[in-house]
Amino acid sequence: MSRRNSWFWNRVAPWVLPGLLLILWQALGSAGLIPKRILPTPVEVVQAALTLAHQGVLWSYIATSAARAFSGFLIGAAAGFLLGTLNGVSRKAGRLLDTPIQMIRTIPHLALVPIVIVWFGIGEQAKLFLVALGTAIPMYMNTYFGIQSLDPGLLEMARVYRFNRAKMFWKVILPGALPSVLSGVRYSLGVMWVTLIVAETISANSGIGYMIMNAQEFMQMNIVVLGIVLYALLGKLSDVIARMLEVKLLAWHPIGLQAV
């Protein structure tokens, strides 16, 4: 395969079908075959984005939603990571805490929305709580699993070489669990956006969810679609960041080495 050919298949080919779909969508809309109240055309969605950006509200909506998402994620991921580490390192803590956490895990956290509204009202805490709870569980599971599945041969080696507790944790346990922890991060980021979308759709007076619900009342379908596209873009962005973290932190990994 020639170099130009492989460049096409690597860089261009994945975008061919989505591109064609967009053109078809625009063409059908312009021809009046899809009514505007059902689905606005891509150009109208872009126009809505430009108008809102010009008014300045678009950025504040995005900033509000992103801030909610990432503060909830930071709280939840930190809690999940710390609990997973504690249970992985201490057998007693694991015996005490793992079963209750597994019980909480079986409850879909979005089923708690009615209770959360009663507890926290419809303010910021409710959204933070839901995002934190949703992201903590996958972080916990992956951290705990990562530590439990460490190579016992390496742990024995570390004993023979008399690693102290700090060296054992920072040089053996943490880096050994890191691949699993990072897939926990990616999974949690996915949960983070889903949870935020649900929470913002139910109740909000700012953010992307508010923008969508507001536009729906006035049948501004182009803004509704814009909001959905924004969620998709933000989700993709956080996945890309997580991928970059993996590439950077797992440079030693045999799979990563092959790719270089």
């Binding site: 040089k171 880096p175 890191l178 030693w252």
Partner: peptide
Amino acid sequence: DARLLPWL
């Protein structure tokens, strides 16, 4: 087996 730490 060598039991080297793969991340170092």
